[in-house]
Amino acid sequence: MKKFISIAMALTLCCSCITIASAADATTLTTTVPDATYTLNIPADQEIPFGATETDIGSVTVTEAAGFAEGKDLRVTLTYDGSFSADDVSTSIPYTINKAAMQSSTIGGPSDAPIKYPVSSGDYLVFKGYYNGSVAEGFAIDADGYNVTNKHLEVVILSEDWGKALAGDYSSTITFTAEVVVSES
């Protein structure tokens, strides 16, 4: 009987050891991907002087970004109705928005002469995510693949459109929509 108990105990001990050994072999790896956070900086109000055909209205930048990565970007879409209107005046003033872009595909390249061209309502800028969790703060890539400096959004009003507008206080607003997206390329 003693022998039987001894063998049973020895077997139990062996099993326990095997269990422990096999449990020790299994390594569970886990990770948590945090929500990305950021501060989107958009132009505030801007008084457009009467008769001005090109007015710098400021820039779109992204700061205090965290939780991004290469392949996880921030896309900012501009939406605007394209005309200034006034409450008590029947006329409106059409406008477009220009942005400054670099001609080369790399910032700082030899042919980086800035050019200006119109931004349609619905066009977007992409702030590329970096490996360190932030995004490119100083420039973005637009829908056409241009590197865009963020310092030159301009409201463009043709001189003849100023001429057609009756006297009044006109206004218009631009909406900037930011969205965290998976990189397109």
Binding site: D35, A36, T37, T39, L40, P43, G67, L74
Partner: peptide, 13 residues
């Protein structure tokens, strides 16, 4: 900064 407006953004809440 009166030239720009800072808007906090979140991927999720």
């Amino acid at each position: 900064n009166s030239d720009s407006i800072a808007v906090p953004g979140y991927e999720g809440l």
